[in-house]
Write a protein that binds this DNA or RNA. Structure first.
Length: 310
DNA sequence: AATTTAGACAACCGCAATACT
DNA sequence: AAGTATTGCGGTTGTCTAAAT
């Protein structure tokens, strides 16, 4: 038996594969090798076809702002079901979506890392240290007043993603499970979100480990928000913009798409898909996540106390 | 100009589901 | 019904290239 070839595909191999698909359709992948046409596994052939050779693929085309918004919303809806998400995105494969999301997460992580003030340096300086997920920066508790900026800062330190639709007021849902964490372990599986359909609520959830300790959110009244909701006016567009979501000005007052449980099944799931599809038919203006973040976006965070002092 | 770094993309691997015998 | 093959999916790793140092 001849050796199985791996690695990048050559043009000649692509042509053989295309010819095979034209003749037999996109199936019988294993027969390509058994017939001696290619020294590739059936699996490899299928993958090549699905991801690169299939017609109508948007190869080499960057994700548009609209596509970005779609991925973000569908990911919030379905989780890492890339194949499913890809079905909503003509010309995109599950691999495309997966890679896009992965890059986005890395980018976010980097931005958030860089936003942590280094105690020994002026805050404008961006640390060049290798990121350490176990090292918790020395932070002091934020002093909050009623300004939207300060509230948004606290929120942004807790989250990498949010999902929202038509509303005037956001309810921040705190994460009690993480309340006592000083760092978030990489492998920790987070519990599923619970949504109440049609509820006007923004759900904020870390989708990758953040190099921040959990910071008890304080109201003006000095009460921790561990188990209460902080009503928040959506005048702070940036809050959502930073995380690739819709801003208040984009949302307007007429479109309402009910949120559905992220891990629902059966009819609930179908209705949530319908809801997403409906929204996609009447898209809201996206704020492209690719818009560069100002690197000093968190520079004016008040230093926070170290978790030991809490 | 050489080297390093980061981002984007391509491909592989393991596992699960499904189809086929 | 059981075993095997095929297909599909998601996570991970590898490769290439452009930008930064």
């Amino acid at each position: 038996m001849s050796e199985i070839k791996k690695g990048p595909w050559k043009e000649e191999e692509d042509q053989v594969l295309i010819k095979h698909v034209k003749k037999y359709g996109p199936r019988d992948w294993s027969s390509i090798r058994s017939k001696g046409l290619l020294q590739r596994t059936g699996k490899s052939c299928r993958l090549r076809w699905v991801n690169k050779l299939r017609p109508n693929l948007k190869n080499g085309v960057k994700f548009s702002a609209e596509e970005e918004r779609t991925v973000i919303e569908l990911q919030a809806q379905f989780g890492n079901k890339w194949a499913r998400i890809a079905t909503y995105m003509p010309g995109r494969t599950d691999n495309d979506v997966k890679n896009f999301w992965s890059s986005r997460q890395k980018r976010l992580a980097k931005i958030l890392r860089n936003s942590v003030p280094q105690p020994s340096k002026p805050q404008k300086n961006i640390s060049k240290e290798a990121p350490s997920l176990t090292k918790v920066p020395s932070l002091e508790e934020p002093k909050l007043n009623s300004s939207a900026e300060e509230r948004s800062l606290v929120v942004s330190q807790h989250c990498s993603s949010s999902y929202t639709n038509n509303f005037d007021t956001i309810n921040i849902v705190p994460l009690p499970e993480l309340a006592n964490s000083t760092s978030l372990p990489f492998d920790e599986e987070l519990p599923p979100l619970e949504f109440t359909p049609n509820e006007k609520r923004i759900c904020i959830w870390p989708q990758f480990p953040l190099p921040f300790p959990h910071i008890p959110v304080q109201t003006n009244f000095g009460q921790p928000l561990e188990h209460q909701e902080l009503p928040m006016k959506l005048e702070d567009n940036d809050l959502l913009d930073y995380f690739g979501q819709l801003s208040a000005s984009d949302i307007g007052g007429n479109v309402q798409v009910p949120l559905a449980p992220s891990c629902s099944s059966g009819q609930d799931q179908r209705s949530s898909e319908i809801a997403v599809k409906r929204e996609l038919e009447y898209p809201l203006t996206p704020d492209s996540f690719n818009d560069d973040f100002p690197l000093d976006m968190f520079d004016y965070i008040d230093p926070l106390q170290s978790p030991a002092g809490w």
